[in-house]
Structures are given as C-alpha cells and as structure tokens.
Design a protein around this nucleic acid. Structure first.
Lengths: 137, 137
DNA sequence: TCTATATTCTACTCAGAGGTAGAAATAAGA
DNA sequence: TCTTATTTCTACCTCTGAGTAGAATATAGA
C-alpha cells in the first residue's frame, strides 16, 4: 500500500522545481540532483508537461520549470498523472458496491482512514509542501 | 495506494472462513462462493496454510478451515503472507532515512496517516472483523 | 484395489511497472 | 549553415502480479 515509485519520483521533482521557481532545469540536471534514472525521468517529464504541470522549453537551453501558482497545483494532480486516482474512491476489498449501508468487512475500520488519505492528496498543494522547509528531494 | 488484489482475496477468504468456523471448505467451494479464480485461489490457500493461518486436509474430503482462535489472527499476518509488510515502515517518498528530525517533503502530512494505517493492520483481528456483522465476502 | 475428488506442484501467458537504448526533432548560438 | 545540447519518440528488456493449464500426489470410500 504505497505510491508507485514513479509517483514518488514525480512528487520529488515537482517539489524540487517548486523550491526553485525562477530556474529552468534540464532532465539531466534533475537526474543528477535527484538520483532519478535519466531516460525514465525524461519520459516522466513529458507526462508532467503534457498534463500542464510544468512548462517545457525545447532545444539547446531546454528544460523544465513550474510557472503556475504553487497553491494551484495539488498533490492529487501529480498522483493522477502517474497512477490515476481510482484507488482513492474504491472499496478496500474491491467490491463494486460498498457503503455504510452495505459495507465490506473492512469498511468500518478503513473508511475514515481512506477519507483522511484522500483528503491529504486532494487538499495539499505544492505551496503547502514548500512551506515545511524540507530540503530533501 | 491499495492492497494487492491477492491480498484482497486473502482477507476475504479468511473472513469467510472465520464466519464458518466449524466447516471445512474446498478451494472449489471457496472459488464459487467468493468468485476468486480457482487455480489462483488454490495457490493462495497453499500460502495461507504454509503460513499456518488455515488448516488443510488433503484428499477426497479435503479442504481448508481455521482452527486458531480468531482473536489471535491479525490482519497484518494475512497482509504479510501475500505482499509483506515493508510498505508500512518506509518513507512515503522512498528515502532511506526519513524522520521527524530529517523529514522528506511529505513527512509532516503523511506520518500520522501512516501510523493510523499501520495500527489498523497490526491491531485488527479476525474476531474484530467478524463482529461487524458483514456478510459481504 | 480402484475410482473419484481433493491438494500440491510446475510451467506457461499477459500486462504493467521500472528501466535502458537509440533515433528523430527542436532550438540556441557560433 | 552548422554544431551542440536538449526534448521527443519509439522500441526493447526484466521482473512481478494476476491468472491459466496440466501433471503429480494424497486420501476417502466403494
């Protein structure tokens, strides 16, 4: 029960770029700084740019940066780009129908926890993550 | 961020058998009752029996049942058989070292949630799940 | 002993995650 | 225009999760 590794990479990259708002970073620079496999990172950056989360410059001085307002970029958007958000709205045991009125065995102990996790990813912005002062990317 | 599908199967089977303590069920019966792929279920039952979570009878009237005290079988043991428990003690972004003193970007918003999930699987027994009266397996 | 039914074991397939490699396209600067 | 560095695109690989198929082994009951 974890984010996909690629999602971890994506979050780390976005937080790093959020902390360096005025700078453009090439995939190679990001690779070296964050220890993310270069070619794989390139593909990930394409996904993030296709989704509008980063601005990309092609060519000789190319690279990626964030231009959006950090408080408008939510964790859920990053998670969605990589793995989708289906896991956050589904029954923990996979039943198509599961509710307070028709619960699966784990519903009672899982419901609040799921809501808490879901709230975390939908409510947290890059601005929030920036403000915690972490320098670990 | 979900249990593996096989873990879902395992939990469902164990809860079903917990609710039918006096009966032995063959893999075929479980397959038909719970809509879990037959051959795959057989392999899962082997794992559960190798781990001591179910008692197995071979041969003509063979099958599986739980003989342990339900309040001694924890959700974590079931999760451990299938996917291991590594996810529950690690940094959400995968850093080898992540703590209150040296946190990753998500540490602050993830720590309590992780503890809550971890507590859920380590503290919940089949007896607890039985008592919620669910009949959805 | 034989038959039938069950578990156990082994091997295979496909899809997706994570990753590598190479070619093509883009753009700055000389 | 050419060179260089970058992004973009395409194809390949390995491993694991999920699942199927078949054979071997174990056991009850006739």
């Amino acid at each position: 029960m974890r984010f996909q590794k690629t999602t971890e990479y994506a979050i780390r990259v976005m937080v790093f770029l959020a902390d360096h708002m005025d700078e453009r970073y090439s995939a190679n620079q990001l690779h070296q700084t964050l220890q993310i496999p270069y070619k794989y990172l390139g593909r990930l950056m394409q996904k993030l740019s296709n989704a509008g989360l980063v601005e990309v410059t092609q060519g000789k001085q190319g690279g990626y940066r964030i231009i959006q307002d950090l408080s408008n970029i939510y964790l859920s958007e990053i998670v969605n780009v990589v793995e989708g958000l289906a896991d956050y709205g589904r029954c923990v045991l996979g039943f198509p129908q599961c509710s307070d009125e028709n619960p699966c065995s784990l519903h009672k102990i899982w419901k609040e926890r799921q809501e808490s996790i879901t709230k975390m990813i939908y409510d947290t912005t890059l601005a929030d993550l920036q403000s915690n002062g972490s320098k670990k990317y």
